[in-house]
Design a protein around this nucleic acid. Structure first.
Lengths: 351, 351
DNA sequence: GTGAAAGCGCTAACAA
DNA sequence: TTGTTAGCGCTTTCAC
């Protein structure tokens, strides 16, 4: 594929003065027009827009940010862009932000406090107007830096007692209870849980919710049936291995996230176990891929769009209307069970 | 999780004047020190750094960009962040860029020219110093806008005859030939190809390379065995369906990307076909997940890190040393076959 | 080697 | 309603 570029001699980009000159108005009028100030007459406004079109002009955001103090940039820090959950989340967040005229800066912390510190520094340097910290991790204390700099923040499952910080609570309880009940109704009693890494709040919350749900269902939890994994596919494989090595094995496994569940599906298959006949598996997240596993994964859906909306809304409120007394500082994102093909009644003998 | 923020009254961020005052030097000296100018005496330099540390100062990038004309921002536009290939690519690109002191702006074009136009506009507004366009798509002509603005670019598989544009060529030929030969050596003759959407150059190049490789191997291609899919898992399922409906079926399928191959794996399983005994499947990309499919996918590896490195290097050269006559304007990224478990000799009867 | 001063392109206060 | 002007925080001549 070869294509000729159009060789217009790249003239210096037009600035506000060029526009003003062409439209025969002052630069202030151009600025007002662009920013939609009502104090510009239709006549001039029209002339200015024509000049702008003609010159293909757009304002220099750096100059703008410098003088206005507003950068119209939001940061989003995720745990690991390589986990399919996060690209889906980033895409939603970006769409919303761009629709509202913001640019976004994306970073992954990879669960490392030093990396997070560095992300925060970079975002501060770029003068972000808010940062969504969706790392779910214990490295979050380093966020003090943002607090000091008075940057609005929204954290998932982490409450920072600061006037600039909002929180998104994830109601795993409902989804996890539904999942446990679903398994119980199917006839399962021996239910294992492959937890996420304990350095993540989300992992701990999910595990606790599992314990509670099991208790509520009147089931006891075999100590060895709760295993800490790492939210990766490999981790799921390893977790399954440990469970499989046990004298009494569970008939169902609830996983802290979908990647873990996919690992279990894979490991079970390698062992010759059929899912769901020999083993039921439930995930959490409902990543796009969950629909396409073999068998399709029963999972607890955590909506990326809901999460992205909540994160954006929290930041927007703080950035655009910080004085408003009725700012919402706590958002709740719900979860729900999606039943697909990876769960069924246990084999008669296995109960 | 609740944690108290440290309530230092958020003082206004220190600026270069604050530092100068504390270090008892002029702001020019502070600027020089920060920018590593050799013309600063050790004595003053030390004092300045102390003041900087003490105040926790960092420069305002907007002011910097405004005066220097350099933003230290690079843009990267990918086709679709939801395809696992791209997050892996973005992660590499970000790592390299950040290590070199650049910030990155990420966008997906989703194969839509209007969206691409919008991405380009946003990047232009933020004064990016270069843009890596890794969309592989026919919407790329709209990039004229970047050309006009004299912004360095690097495109994958698309040559723009412009002094500011570099190209990354992907040598699919080698990998695809290796894959075809691998299948031939295994005893396959009936080889199908599930192509990508024809609006992508990469898809067309891959398909052509397949045809060539088949010809070189002395095999004829059944016309109905080349099917246009869309590089998604669903597309792979659909493509497999069409192949399966044919009177004579291929014994091996080469796919234009891994997601398609994963779709084929899934569809074959649903039909009760065993891979690789009944059908051999080869992908292209070698996304992280390819190692974990059932069976593990034989695929043509296209290194994300190599691609990211080439993209960054192309932009860096243009941005930092545009006058240098020995700028490299063409990069080549190679591919290679990774044999795993999804390929084997065809069943005796099927040849 | 160091400092004073002139802008970078824009917004916002103040005048008219 | 419109224009004039003073910076925003920094880099970069140009003197010293």
């Amino acid at each position: 594929m070869v294509r000729k570029g159009t060789h217009k001699t790249a003239a210096k980009a037009p600035d506000i003065r060029t526009v003003a000159a062409l439209a025969k108005v002052s630069i202030a009028t151009v600025s007002r027009t662009i920013n939609g100030s009502p104090a510009v007459s239709d006549r001039l406004s029209k002339r200015v827009w024509m000049a702008i079109e003609h010159l293909n002009y757009f304002p220099n955001t750096h100059a703008r940010s410098l003088v206005s103090g507003r950068s119209r940039i939001l940061g989003i820090i995720v745990e690991n862009i390589t986990n399919p959950f996060f690209p889906e989340l980033i895409q939603s967040f970006e769409e919303i932000a761009v629709a509202h005229g913001y640019e976004i800066l994306v970073s992954s912390s990879n669960g490392d406090a030093a990396v997070l510190t560095n992300c925060v520094r970079r975002m501060l340097e770029r003068k972000v107007e808010g940062v969504a910290v969706l790392t779910f991790g214990q490295e979050e204390p380093v966020l003090d830096r943002l607090v000091h700099h008075n940057v609005p923040m929204v954290l998932a499952e982490f409450k920072l007692e600061d006037p600039k910080a909002s929180t998104i609570l994830l109601d795993y309880t409902t989804g996890i209870r539904a999942a446990v009940n679903h398994l119980v109704e199917l006839g399962h009693q021996k239910i294992a849980f492959l937890a996420g890494p304990h350095k993540l709040h989300s992992a701990i919350t999910r595990e606790n919710d599992f314990r509670t749900a099991m208790g509520a269902a009147g089931l006891t939890i075999h100590k060895k049936w709760i295993i800490e994994c790492d939210h990766t596919l490999k981790g799921g494989v390893a977790g399954y291995g440990k469970l499989h090595a046990l004298a009494t094995r569970p008939t169902a496994i609830l996983c802290s996230n979908d990647m873990t569940a996919i690992g279990v599906l894979r490991a079970a298959y390698m062992e010759g176990l059929r899912v769901p006949q020999d083993l039921s598996v439930v995930g959490l997240d409902d990543i796009d891929f969950a629909e396409f596993t073999l068998p399709p994964l029963t999972t607890i859906r955590l909506s990326r769009t809901d999460l992205a909306h909540a994160a954006f809304e929290a930041l927007r409120q703080q950035a655009e209307d910080p004085a408003n007394p009725k700012i919402v500082r706590e958002f709740l994102v719900s979860t729900s069970l999606v039943v697909r093909g990876s769960t069924a009644a246990p084999a008669a003998g296995a109960r």
